[in-house]
Design a protein around this nucleic acid. Structure first.
Lengths: 188, 188
DNA sequence: AGACGATGTGTACATCCTTACATATCGTCT
DNA sequence: AGACGATATGTAAGGATGTACACATCGTCT
């Protein structure tokens, strides 16, 4: 070390690295997410990587955990805001068709998460927990069986619309939601 | 080259490499799919890789194309075998819950494909074409709107069941399919 | 003030990777 | 039989990667 540039005081650098990791994964995929690229994105030296994490896998686990946390929170928030069953229905439609939850970024990252969870037990647990929370939020408004169904179409429709935008239109989504919640219909 | 081991006569080696690539991707993901690993899996020397393909990307594109072809064919076959609307409904249930289509292998590979398609135009086209064929197969039995809906739940339910087997039970699936095809009910 | 542990930084190294290519071998056409 | 193009093979060059680690610097506690 010849010219040690002034060392930065940088608490929660660890968190910044984790967020940077998500940015890198979004663009390059897990396959292209390297120590160096993440370090650059977080604007920290390479050495910080080995200091804060025991290997790349630990970075990925932290990153995907953060993703699940963030996305799941938004999901629950939107559903909890609904006061009547009709509002809950509309919230589901909004989750699928709106630009709050099913963003391009979230979808890209979710796909990486899906794939990664097949090969990593910790991430699989994160994924399962995420789904459980979604399901619980839906169950505040709907029966257990209906919650399963709605969760299913949320997953499926967002994927379709990622590949081909507006294949599953808002109108079709609304119709699906109604069909699957009809028997529970109430005044609201 | 000191001791050139007897060169093999090996037509359609290219295809074997492509299939081996899928095996490797299934186990190691795109991130861990290297020339060497694929060559080993296909039982060919490393040099064969650069002879048959101009880089890894070309291998991946070929592999995912093969996957889409194979899986899509099975999908269409099962649906085309249905003669009545009730049989078609049951075919959809079988696609989701059976062990023919939504196998562990296919799911793992599909996730890699989803993720990869976000970063590769050729694969995105393959993916879109795959979805179009599925939709067409469904439209032989159901209205356009219902086809969208069924395609959606197929996607969503298989994902849920991959993460947590039997979360979406056969019974729930059957109920969903019925709910979404009720208005089209006929004697069968 | 001094010491000590936590945090930050640069660099080196072994490993693995992609890719290219010179050479060997085969099928087939004349 | 001979020639020629397609196919097959081993190896090496050059670059990227993961990880370790020695050293610098800071916060904080005594």
């Amino acid at each position: 070390m010849k010219q040690p540039s002034r060392r930065r005081y940088d608490p929660d650098r660890r968190n910044r690295i984790i967020e940077a990791a998500l940015d890198v994964i979004e663009i390059h995929g897990i396959a292209g997410a390297t120590h160096r690229r993440i370090a650059d994105a977080a604007d920290v030296p390479l050495g910080s990587m080995s200091y804060h994490f025991n290997g790349l896998e630990e970075v990925f686990v932290a990153a995907f955990s953060l993703l699940a946390e963030t996305v799941s929170a938004k999901f629950v928030e939107l559903l909890d805001a609904a006061k009547t069953k009709d509002e809950a229905r509309e919230a589901v439609v909004e989750l699928i068709c709106g630009n709050v939850w099913a963003t391009e970024r979230n979808m890209r990252l979710s796909y990486e998460l899906y794939a990664y969870s097949m090969r990593n037990e910790a991430i699989r647990a994160v994924f399962v927990d995420w789904m459980a929370r979604s399901r619980r939020a839906l169950e505040r408004h709907f029966s257990s069986r209906t919650a399963d169904a709605l969760d299913t179409i949320i997953e499926g429709a967002t994927i379709h619309n990622t590949a081909q935008p507006d294949t599953v239109t808002r109108e079709v989504v609304r119709w699906m939601v109604l069909s699957l919640t009809r028997e529970e219909y109430d005044i609201g």
